[in-house]
Amino acid sequence: MRSTNTFSILFFVNKKKKNDDQALLYARITVDGKRVNLSLKRKIDISLWDATKKRARGSSSEARQINLYLDQTHTQLFQCYQDLKFKGELITAQLIKASYGGELETSKTLQELIDYHTRKIESTLAPGTIINFGITENYIKRFLKTSLKTTDVFLKQLDYKFICDFETFLHKYWPKGHPKAMNHNTVMKHLQRLRKMV
C-alpha cells in the first residue's frame, strides 16, 4: 500500500453562482489526482479576487480579512491531512473534507451511538436483553448528567478515565427500590454492555 500521497489545496471563486458581483469562495482539495470542492460559506466581490495568486488583491480591510481566513482554512485542512497521515489511515480528498467538517467517526457522540445501537437491536435480541441494555443506557445518561454535568460526550472522550469514573459511579450508585448498592458482577455487566455498544 502506498505510504505517500500527493496533496494540494487550491482556493477559487465560483462565478457561476455569483449574485450582484459577489461570488462564493471554495477550496479544492486534491489527493492523488482525485478532488473535492468545499464551500467556505463566504462571499467575495469578484473584482477583489486575484485568480493568479488565489487570494484577495489589495490591502483593504476586507481583503486582509479574507486572506487571513484563507490562511486559517489552509492550515486547518493541512492539519486534517496530517492527522490522517499520523494515524496511518486511508487518505482521500473526501475524508479530509469530512474531517474538516467534523463528519468523521471521531466527531460522533455517545448519545448518537446509543441511539444507533437501540435501533440496531430492536429486532435482533430477546426482549429481556433489550431491557437490560435500556437500563445500562439510563445509567450512562445519569452518569453524564450527575458526574460530568453534561448530556453527551464525543466518542473520542471515551478513554480509560471515563470508564474508571463510570465504574466508580456505578459502585456508589444505589438504585431506587433496591435493598443495597450494585454488587461487583452487576457493575461489570453494565460495563460489558457499554463495551458492546462501542
Rank of each mutant, 00 (worst) to 15 (best):
M182Y: 08
T109Q: 02
I140K: 09
Y69V: 01
K120C: 05
I96E: 05
S123W: 05
A63S: 04
L144Q: 08
A126Y: 01
K85L: 10
E137Y: 03
K87F: 01
V198E: 11
G88Q: 04
R28M: 13
K87E: 12
E103F: 08
R193W: 04
K87S: 07
I46H: 10
T52G: 07
Y139G: 02
K43P: 00
K180C: 05
D45W: 07
S39N: 05
Q82L: 14
N185F: 11
Y69R: 04
L170D: 01
W49S: 03
A181I: 11
K145S: 15
G102L: 06
Y100D: 02
L90T: 10
E167K: 15
N185K: 13
H74P: 01
F11K: 15
L10A: 13
L84Y: 05
D115L: 15
G101R: 10
N183E: 02
T124N: 01
K87H: 02
S47G: 03
A181T: 14
D21C: 12
G58L: 07
L125Q: 09
Q76M: 11
N185Q: 11
K172Y: 10
D50H: 02
G58M: 04
H178R: 06
K172G: 11
H117G: 06
Y160C: 14
W174S: 15
E137L: 00
Q192N: 12
L68S: 03
A27F: 13
D71P: 03
L90I: 04
I114M: 10
N14T: 00
N183W: 06
L170M: 02
Q192Y: 08
I114G: 05
F166D: 08
G128H: 09
H178N: 05
F78P: 03
L144F: 12
T6Q: 11
T6K: 12
T151K: 10
H117T: 08
K53T: 14
D71E: 09
Y139N: 12
E137W: 02
L155P: 08
E137C: 05
K108R: 03
L170N: 03
L24A: 09
N19T: 14
D32C: 02
A63G: 00
L40D: 09
E62L: 00
L77P: 11
T4Y: 14
S60K: 00
T146Q: 15
S59I: 02
V31T: 00
I9V: 14
Y160Q: 15
E137G: 00
D115R: 12
C164G: 02
